[in-house]
Each structure stands twice: as structure tokens, then as C-alpha cells.
Design a binder for these strands. Sequence first.
DNA 1: TTGTAGGCGTTATCAC
DNA 2: GTGATAACGCCTACAA
Lengths: 342, 342
Amino acid sequence: MKLGQATIKDIAKELNVSLSTVSRALKNYPGISEETKRRVKETAERLNYRPNAVALSLRQSKSFTIGVIIPEVVHFFFSTVISGIEEVAYANGYNVILCQTNEKYEREKSILDTMLANQVDGLLVSFSKETKDFDHFTKLIELELPIVFFDRIPAIDSSVHVTVNDFQGAYDAVTHLLQQGYKKIAHISGPENLTITKQRKEGYLKAIRDFDEAISYTKILECPSGNEDESFKLVNALFTNGEEKPDAIFAHHDLAAAGALMALKSLGIKIPEEVGLVGYSNWQFSSMIDPPLSTVSQPGASIGETATKLLLDMINKNGNTGTISKSVMLDTELIIRKSSSK
Amino acid sequence: MKLGQATIKDIAKELNVSLSTVSRALKNYPGISEETKRRVKETAERLNYRPNAVALSLRQSKSFTIGVIIPEVVHFFFSTVISGIEEVAYANGYNVILCQTNEKYEREKSILDTMLANQVDGLLVSFSKETKDFDHFTKLIELELPIVFFDRIPAIDSSVHVTVNDFQGAYDAVTHLLQQGYKKIAHISGPENLTITKQRKEGYLKAIRDFDEAISYTKILECPSGNEDESFKLVNALFTNGEEKPDAIFAHHDLAAAGALMALKSLGIKIPEEVGLVGYSNWQFSSMIDPPLSTVSQPGASIGETATKLLLDMINKNGNTGTISKSVMLDTELIIRKSSSK
DNA sequence: TTGTAGGCGTTATCAC
DNA sequence: GTGATAACGCCTACAA
């Protein structure tokens, strides 16, 4: 904190009035003469006065700060969510404290402590891959701390969350592949404990079941890390081990799709002619790779905005007491590019 | 803030001791009986006591919070910087308040006000493309608020900043192209008012001057937005307008390089055979596009870490009083991939 | 070894 | 219309 920041006290001293008068004048309270108001404001301006938000927090037991806990900022998806969060928070006079767990459970708990110590008014959370136990969150929910989960949601009944319809997103993607004439579609799956992984897997399976009874090929490659290296190896193995080969791949993530793409290319397999490919998330690079990658776009900014609005509602107990904030599910959008267009 | 969070007062009441005893016991002050200490700590645990950081901030005139102002989180480079910042801040018990300017000057000023109101102990700043006047920062520096600029640095003499050696990075990239046998190298430039733009441009020119007197072709395409669409158009125009054509392109950014790459491909021009290409920043997609893009890698995490360490030093006035914190310049690394390898 | 009181900056509640 | 005072949660110099 800068030394010598002017306070209300300085203004009062300067003008020989009381603290309360200054406070009231600054906030345009009734019952203060226009003259006094003018003088106070002018002095405040001159002394470069700035209200001390920390003192306000203490006084009002409200910090106007929300905590955001995410796995990693470098994930394009999360960074778009952050943008959405910031936008809404900022517009409503709230600050954002941001921390990343780096996918570590211990770190997540530690961050939570810090945020609580800092009196955040509420929390936006997408928990780590390691997190399998949600006690640290349920305790807080019981204490009525507003929490909104997004993208990765916990198995807590009363939790409020914002997700995208991952089941439908996967379903659409796989249906699209089937409609393009692909008949043997494999799925590269993701981290096991996440709901999104399960949803996408189920969407994949359901799409195949629904499309045509004659089509029954399914193959799931478990790729817990979800990154391109692991995916590269898995796909490479699948196409060289003599096993029945798929003619299309639906990856649970663009990174995994990119790994698959590189593996296929290195094996001289043509995309989309021999093998079709669809990813998930619409990362920035997806449109720039060759061939451009079809993918399922998640509305990152909307997720952030929606989650933040929900949270602010909870914080401000908007809506009549009866209206409990409800979770929201947003739609995905299938983006068809060359990698799946025969 | 949650209702009913236990305070020091609650513990004192519970044990019939004074506030100061509790406070001292919790902080392991000398001169407190082991017995009392034990009882206090046990009660604290039981009541789920958590020190109130806001009260501490007020009391100590120190918030243990640093403000980070960046243009946009969705830029891969900035997100890596943030990771570095978070890492160091967190390890030293500091919180991070993050705000993005979305490249808007007005927003930047407004964010600055908010951060000051929140009594940040220091600031890490990469200002917006629109910012041409630095009064809002110089005022604060005069008030001795610690500020460290990174990546984009202002024309302020006394400013402390962390940059990468953009001149050298560009120089290396262009020299590499020349060594590969390319002789007519064009440069796609970036936002005008940024030092990094100037540095990269100069590195480009110097490399050509230094390499071989016989080579004199230079061509600079101004691309103020720096994005792939604008770059696409510029390159497309350059190669179709009958003008003398370059046989290589050094782009000031990977996004611009990606635009160039798409333009060249759409014209049927082979990379790297007919035209070589090098970008800047080593974005995630660079290794995944076809051909993989040579680029200059900036150590984002290091920048963040270094800047944060510098800032914490300034905040804590480390080093003897004489030791003024100095600015730091980090090295880039040329990453050679297919797009520039004849 | 423990308790008391004042203060960090602000505002709400009284009083005048 | 304005002023004095207590309180938010915590720490610490000074007393006891």
C-alpha cells in the first residue's frame, strides 16, 4: 500500500469538520449543506482521496471480492471462462481473486483456505483432476458460502453449477460422423473422475446405438491425462497392433484430437478420406491445423458469465427468498471442418 | 463472507482469557504458558477459527495482495506469464488480483483505481495497445507504489521492467532464415506503439544488414492488429499484386504467421520449399500446424516469475537500501521446425 | 504470564 | 446540519 494515501480523517482535519460530515458528504447523504458537500468533495479531489476498500470490507463484512479456482489458466477453455467471469464481476463492482490448482488436490484445499481468510463473498470453482472428495466444499456450502461450480461439477446434491450439455455435444459429433458415412468410430476418453468425461462417453455410445442397428463397432481408448502425447501413442498403437481399425475418431478434447491427427499423419493415413476426426473444445489452433479440425465448441465466455451472474444472485440473495438459484446447462455447437467432411 | 465465522473474541470468551492472550498464543509468542497455548489452539481448531486477512490488512497497512493488469488472459503468452506470477506470489503468501484491460485505455485506468482502493501492495503491468500516455502509472511510481512492467514497457525512465530480448530474438530468427538460403525476407510487423514491435523490426533489419552485403531486400507489412485475418489479407495481397515477392517471411507473432501460412497455402505456395516462415511466441498450436512453425519462444513463466520476484523485493525493500531493483531482460530461444527448414 | 487500551479507515447510531 | 462514539477483527505497547 502506498504511503501517505489520504483518508477521510485528512479531509476532516483540513476543513475542520468531523469525520461523519466528510463521510456523509462524500456519499451524498441528505442533511448536509450543499456548501459543505462542495468543499468536502473539492478537498477530496485535491488530496487525491480514495476510499479504502479494505476498511470497507471490515466494516461491512463484505469484500466485494469473488474467488475463482481453476485448474490452469493456460488452458484456452479456462481462459475464455475467466474472461466471462471478469466481465460480469467487473461490471458489478466485484473483484476477482484468481488461483490455479495445477490439478493438485492439496493445492486446492490450501487455496480455499487463503480465499476464505480473505473473506471472499463467494466462490467459482472448477476443481482439479485429483479431487475425488468434496468435503472441503460441502463444509462451506453448509456454512452458506455461495459457491458455483462450472465445467467440472461435484457429486453434491445441493450444489449449484454451470455446465455445457456434454452428452448432447458428443452425441451430435458422433452422429455427424455417422452421417458422413463413417461406420467404425473410436472414442478417445479423458480423466476418469470428471463428469464431463462420463457424459461425453455416454453421448458417444448413445449416438452409435441410435443411428443404425447394423453399426455396432465401439472402441474406447482411455486417455486419462488427456494430452496430445498420450493420445499420439494410443492411436499409433491402435493402428499398428493388428486390431480391427476404426474409420473415425471422436476425441474428448482437441488436444487429444491433435495427438491423434499427428499419429495418423505419421502413419500416412489420410484425413478425412480414410479416417474422420472430431475433437472437443474448439481451441484456437483447431482451425489452423491441417486439415482443420471439426470440433464441439463450448461457450467458454458464456459459462463464465452465467456462473458469475448466478453467484452474484446468490451473494445478493436476489429473487425472493423462495427462489433458489438453479443450475444451468448451456448448449454446445458442432463446428464442422475438413477433418470430418468426406 | 460466511456468517458466523469464529473470531479471536469467540475463542477468548470460550476460555475466559483476554483477546491478547489468544492472539499471542496463536502466533506462538514467547511468554505464554504451554498450557494456555494448547488450550487456545485446540479451541481455535474446534471453532474452525481462521484469521481474518481483511482485518490484518487494515491493521498492518499491508494487504499481501498484488494486482496484475494484462491485456487478455486468452493470449497464450499472457496465460503462461500468469502461471509464473501465481507460482511465486503463492509461494510467498501473496494473493493475486487479476484484471484484463481488453486492450482498452479507459478500462486500464479504471482497473488501476480499483486496485488502489483495494490496497494492493504492488502492481504487475502489461499495458494495453491503446495506452500511449503513462501519467496514471508515473503518478503511482512517484508515490512509491512498487510497479513492475513486463513484456510491454513504458517510456518511463525510472520504471522497473522485465522483458525478453526481442531485438536478439528477431535477429536470430532472420539470421536463421538467411542461413537456410532465403534471400528476400519480408517482415509482418505488429502494433505500432509497443516497444516489442520496434525491437523485432530492428532485429529483422539488422540481421539482413549484417549477413551479406549482396542481400538488400527488405519489406515490412504493417499489421497493427497482429491477428491472423489481417495477416492473411496482407500476405495474400503481397503475393498477387505483381510486386517483387519475398522468399521468406518473419512474422512478429505466431498468429500473424498462421495467417501468412494459410494465405500461402491457399495460393498453392509450398512451405518451406518456396517460402520460408518463422513466427514469434511459440504458441501451443505452432507445433501442430502443417508444416510445424518455426518460432521464437518467449519464456512466459520465467517472465512472470522474475517480475514477481522483483516486485516482492521492492515491496519488502529487500537488498540494502542502496540496491535499487533493476530491470531484467530474458533470452528468447529460436525453435526451428519444418516451416523454415529447406 | 496475562490483561487493557488504542488504533488501522470507515460508517451507523445516537445526540446536539 | 453537524459531531461524538462504537464497532468491524486484529495486533501490540504498556501495565499489572
